[in-house]
């Protein structure tokens, strides 16, 4: 599969990941089409964060097929095995995948603008002046015009998370992963981050979102996946999974969160 046709897709078959003896993801099948918005819901410890971390290459899977943007992530398939790619090749793959963390993980030694510039300048070697303009434009697009000179500690949680989104977008990713992006925020700050994500969804970005925001999932997602105990329990249109769940486990979970 060439990289061009696969842009913005995620494809997993029989994906398995364990930490020691504990299996945290088991026989996961996943197909995300270009431009699709997938929300992953489920209790803590269900494996949704681990799944996203696998798709970003932060965790190495034990077994199975995992293709992101049409490429086997981190490995090259041979007739008998998967051979690990060189560090540089993996890094190149990662530049095409954006990740937004629950705890933002902005670089505290850089301003908002420098955070957003960090990818293009430090990884891609892009010219600084141009990257700076681009960073300002991205900050404006997430509603943070004029905050470029602020350090992370001078920003609220919601603002930090929006900078983090802009930092990911600066790399022109084809797939965006969100690992519970609003879980660490004050309730009144959740909306501003969801609004930015909604805007991104409307612009056709492929998005894979682990979230507890059921309202957001219902409104924005094309597909909702319910995970529990490392397994995909149920998957389908948001109206079906959230409105008319088929599995008893899904019903029970939704009862407690809604």
């Amino acid at each position: 599969m060439s990289q061009m046709n696969g842009d913005g897709t995620v494809h997993a078959r029989g994906l398995r990941k364990s930490f020691g003896d504990r299996v945290v993801l088991d026989s996961i099948d996943l197909d995300v089409a270009s431009g699709e918005i997938v929300c992953i819901i489920g209790p803590s410890g269900s494996g949704k964060s681990t799944l996203l971390r696998c798709v970003d290459g932060l965790e190495e899977i034990d077994r199975g097929v995992l293709r992101v943007n049409g490429e086997d992530l981190g490995f090259r398939e041979t007739s008998t095995s998967y051979q690990a790619l060189k560090r540089k090749e993996v890094a190149a793959q990662r530049t095409r995948i954006g990740m937004v963390f629950q705890s933002f993980n902005l670089f505290p030694n850089m301003t908002a603008q420098e955070n957003v510039m960090s990818g293009p300048v430090l990884v891609k070697g892009a010219p600084k002046a141009e990257s700076r303009r681009r960073a300002d434009a991205l900050l404006t697009s997430v509603g943070l015009e004029g905050h470029g000179d602020h350090y992370p500690w001078q920003l609220s949680g919601g603002q930090q998370q929006r900078v983090a989104i802009a930092r990911s977008l600066a790399m022109d990713p084809k797939v965006m992963l969100f690992d519970e992006p609003t879980s660490a925020l004050d309730p009144e700050r959740v909306g501003e981050v969801l609004a930015v994500m909604k805007d991104l969804a409307q612009r056709g970005m492929t998005m894979l979102i682990a979230t507890h925001e059921m309202g957001f999932a219902r409104e924005v997602a094309d597909t909702v996946i319910f995970m529990d105990g490392g397994l995909v329990v149920e998957k389908g249109k948001p109206a079906d999974v959230l409105g008319n769940p088929q599995e008893p486990r899904t019903c029970k979970f939704l009862e407690t969160v809604l």
Binding site: A91, A92, F101, S103, N105, N109, V123, M171
Partner: peptide, 26 residues
Amino acid sequence: DKGQIEAADSLGMSRGTKLRRIIVPQ
């Protein structure tokens, strides 16, 4: 913080860049 290294990894930073720009200053 481990999250800092993950953020740098996720941007595709090389080991050298990560060390010079993220780990050493922090």
